[in-house]
């Protein structure tokens, strides 16, 4: 009985322990919350990709979108790639509006204005930032022979995530909020025959942090 319990509990305990620690902070500044619910409107979340040294990762944008859609089924989140392709070439890194006032000029293109109206886009949320590897140390050697293979060593690395979400109201053509989050964590990989990754979910924590605040904002309408 004890053996059976240990077989069940041990992998669970290993899995529970096999994630590194992450510290994160979230700041928000919201000016105008929605006055109506989002059941008849849609939201698009886009990543900023105009900087030369970093791009907001598409999987982070997708993660925040899924977090919002899973949290409130009434909110329709438009897929980023689908939106960018539909509105080509107006949301490419070279042409994407950087300020909310740029929307006015974009809306002067009748096909763009018509398409946006058809999609009932109420909010456009821009995510700007990235997750970067800060340091890494340690070494690991792996070998394989006729009797089997294995690894030996220890590795560690740190990740830092920094993101900011800017919320644009399409109806009022105004910026209505900013949410920023930072997260950092250290991951470890000890290896005695089998490498055991103990990964700090830095990007996932940043996604949850910013996703929760956006969800709260978008769900606050009557």
């Amino acid at each position: 009985m004890i053996r059976m319990l240990s077989r069940i509990l041990l992998p669970g305990a290993v899995l529970a322990l096999a994630s590194g620690c992450v510290t994160s902070t979230v700041d928000q500044m919201v000016f105008n919350k929605p006055t109506e619910d989002m059941s008849n409107a849609s939201v698009v979340i886009l990543g900023r990709r105009h900087a030369s040294d970093y791009d907001t990762e598409p999987d982070f944008v997708e993660c925040v979108g899924e977090h919002i859609a899973d949290g409130d089924g009434r909110i329709h989140v438009i897929d980023e790639l689908e939106f960018i392709n539909t509105f080509y070439p107006w949301f490419e890194p070279r042409t994407a509006p950087l300020r909310v006032t740029d929307l006015e000029r974009l809306m002067r293109q009748p096909p763009v204005a018509e398409k946006l109206a058809a999609l009932k886009t109420e909010y456009m949320i821009w995510l700007d930032g990235s997750t970067e590897r800060t340091d890494s140390a340690g070494s690991m050697t792996c070998g394989i022979g006729p009797g089997g293979g294995g690894c030996f060593g220890f590795g560690t690395w740190g990740d830092d995530a920094k993101y900011e979400a800017t919320i644009w109201d399409f109806t009022d053509r105004a910026e209505v909020g900013r949410i920023s989050t930072t997260a950092s964590g250290q991951s470890y990989m000890p290896a005695v025959v089998i490498p055991i990754p103990i990964i700090a979910p830095v990007q996932g924590t940043a996604c949850d942090g910013i996703g929760d605040q956006l969800l709260q904002f978008l769900s606050s309408g009557e």
Binding site: Y88, Q109, V112
Partner: peptide, 11 residues
Amino acid sequence: VKGNFPAPLMQ
């Protein structure tokens, strides 16, 4: 090089 290129949305 292979890819899909969307049509532009413009007048």
